[in-house]
């Protein structure tokens, strides 16, 4: 029984990790390619979730909701990039932090204005809201498995996109030398808009996927944003591979930490103390992980030498 529980927790960690990857992919690209710290990335997560909840309510189809989350967040990304983000590339990190913090306020209050203060609900369709039996007598949620599958599929797609296509080569070139690639006739402005919008769309999709498990509310993006930053830093800025490894590492560490640490401390303390200490340390575990990674590898696991 313990073993099945452990596997189940591991799958939860994997599901959490793949979602974090969707969130971090855009963040790390925008970070790496445009050198922009985007605190407002969590807002696209929120916009995606609200878009999905709205369209699922109107059409009655969860899948139309999912697709629209992608589209809504992408549009929001394009508009934000053209109106604001574009002006920030040449500014220093401090200004970027401040301006994108301001964007969070605008997006969060804007959504609260339109939808009101109460959370919305996005329901998982009944055919997915069930359990499925896996080998070794493991029973697991169908929906969460779907999330893992989508996450891995998109990771694969992004890998192909960044390493095998013309767009990916241009993105990489822009990362290395933005003057040179604009001299070579690539429209760098459009390229940046595409990268930003793609990142926003992925964040929106993950917002919708998670919104169906939790609730869809204002401010849902910020806790995930901080985690996504942790992922980006652990993986190394600008690296899709790093983001994938980092996301899985963070997801599994967090989930297993909460499950295993109290058990571990039971070897040394009485049950109540062990639960208390274990869960306190577990809540900090990913930040401890990040601090350790940075202390030994100051530019992340797959990052280039110090920024």
């Amino acid at each position: 029984m313990e073993f099945q529980l452990l596997i189940e927790q591991l799958l939860n960690g994997l599901q959490f990790g793949t979602m974090l990857f969707l969130m971090s992919a855009g963040l790390t690209l925008v970070f790496g390619v445009m050198g922009l710290i985007n605190l407002a990335h969590g807002s696209f997560y929120m916009i995606g979730a609200f878009g999905a909840a709205l369209l699922a309510e109107i059409t009655g189809s969860f899948f139309i909701g999912l697709i629209s989350s992608f589209i809504f967040a992408m549009f929001a990304g394009v508009i934000t990039e053209i109106l604001v983000i574009r002006k920030l590339y040449k500014k220093d990190h401090l200004d970027q932090v401040l301006a994108t913090f301001a964007l969070i306020l605008i997006f969060s209050e804007g959504i609260r204005w339109i939808f009101g203060a109460y959370p919305l609900y996005l329901n998982i369709p009944s055919e997915l809201n069930a359990s499925v039996s896996l080998p070794l007598e493991i029973i697991y949620s169908k929906y969460r498995l779907l999330i893992i599958a989508i996450g891995i599929l998109i990771a694969f797609f992004l890998y192909i996109l960044t390493s095998k296509t013309l767009l990916g080569i241009r993105i990489k070139a822009g990362q290395n030398d933005r003057e040179m690639i604009s001299v070579l006739g690539v429209n760098i402005k459009t390229l940046y808009t595409i990268v930003f919008a793609l990142g926003a769309a992925l964040a929106g999709l993950s917002g919708a996927l998670i919104g169906a498990i939790q609730s869809v509310e204002v401010g849902m993006g910020e806790p995930v944003l901080i985690l996504a930053f942790v992922v980006v830093i652990i993986g190394g800025i600008g690296s899709i591979k790093g983001a994938f490894v980092g996301a899985l590492l963070v997801g599994v560490t967090d989930t297993l930490g909460r499950f295993l640490l109290p058990e571990l401390f039971k070897l040394f303390f009485n049950n109540a103390d062990a639960n208390l200490i274990g869960s306190s340390i577990a809540s900090m575990s990913i930040y401890i992980l990040m601090a350790i990674v940075l202390i030994f590898k100051p530019s992340g696991l797959f990052g280039k030498s110090s920024a």
């Binding site: 990190h93 830093i233 809540s283 900090m284 202390i295 100051p298």
Partner: peptide, 26 residues
């Protein structure tokens, strides 16, 4: 030991540790 963006994020990480500790310590 770090600098630039990594410095921003590691200081954030330490603060978050204390934040979650304060929440989970009753």
């Amino acid at each position: 030991r770090t600098s630039g963006v990594y410095f921003i994020m590691i200081t954030l990480a330490f603060a978050q540790m204390l934040y979650y500790f304060s929440i989970s310590w009753p």
